[in-house]
Amino acid sequence: MSTFQLHNEIKKFIISHSEGFKEFELMKHLEENNDCIKSVDGTDELSLFKKHFLIMNALYKLQDCYWEEDKARLHISATRIYLKKFTDGDTYVHPSTDNSNAKLKEYYLEWSNLIEMSQQSVEQLLDEFWIKYYAIDKRSDALKLLGLSAQASHKEIKTKFKNLAARHHPDKGGDADTFIQIRNAYEILIL
């Protein structure tokens, strides 16, 4: 398995897709054109995770190379990956100080996360993802129920919950169903 060949193939793909691309497109390309990805047999969740991990590891390593060598920023997100060359007057945050992806980058650069991965741990990761994904979907309803903005801080959420819970608690003459809705909304928002 040669990560050098993988990096080179990804670099060629990035150059040929100047408008950007999705990880799935890159994976399909690499499955046909790169021995490193081809060597990961199977279509089960563990095999797909291994391919994903190898690709993300390479992308995050390339992100630093592009910054230092080419004065460009490789943007990596779940919806789009693209390279942006710097022009005069551009201001960019160095990839190592970009907190929005710092934890992901740290995860994908640590080889033990790939080596220690099992089918069971992939299933657990997927379950956790879907729980968080559905919580995001419910978050706007929960904010509306509590009368909060999308930018509400943890402290504001907690304070609002305490006030509403005290007002609607069944022991204080409130409606039990309303109290349960308030409690459920609070639990969604503190995830």
Rank of each mutant, 00 (worst) to 15 (best):
I136K: 15
L164R: 01
Y133I: 04
A176I: 13
A166Q: 15
L146K: 03
L148P: 07
K172G: 02
D175G: 03
H169A: 09
L143E: 05
G147L: 11
A135H: 11
K155R: 15
D175H: 04
S153K: 12
P170Y: 03
D141C: 00
S140Q: 09
R139K: 13
I136C: 06
Y134C: 07
K172Q: 12
D171R: 14
E156P: 03
K158Q: 14
D175W: 01
N163S: 14
T159Y: 10
S153L: 09
G174D: 01
D141E: 10
W130H: 12
L148F: 04
D137Y: 09
W130P: 03
G174W: 00
D127G: 05
G147S: 09
K138H: 03
K144S: 13
T178A: 04
S149M: 08
L146S: 07
G147M: 07
I131N: 06
T178S: 05
I136R: 14
K158F: 12
S149T: 14
S153A: 06
L164V: 05
T178R: 05
S153N: 08
S149K: 13
L145M: 08
K172I: 04
A176M: 10
I157W: 08
G174Y: 01
A166I: 12
A142W: 01
A152D: 02
F179I: 02
A150T: 15
S149Q: 13
K155I: 12
H169C: 07
A142D: 00
Q151A: 14
W130I: 08
D127W: 06
D177K: 15
Q151V: 09
S153H: 05
T178G: 01
E156T: 10
F161C: 01
K162R: 14
G173T: 05
I157P: 07
L145V: 04
K160M: 11
I136W: 06
D137T: 08
H154C: 10
G173M: 04
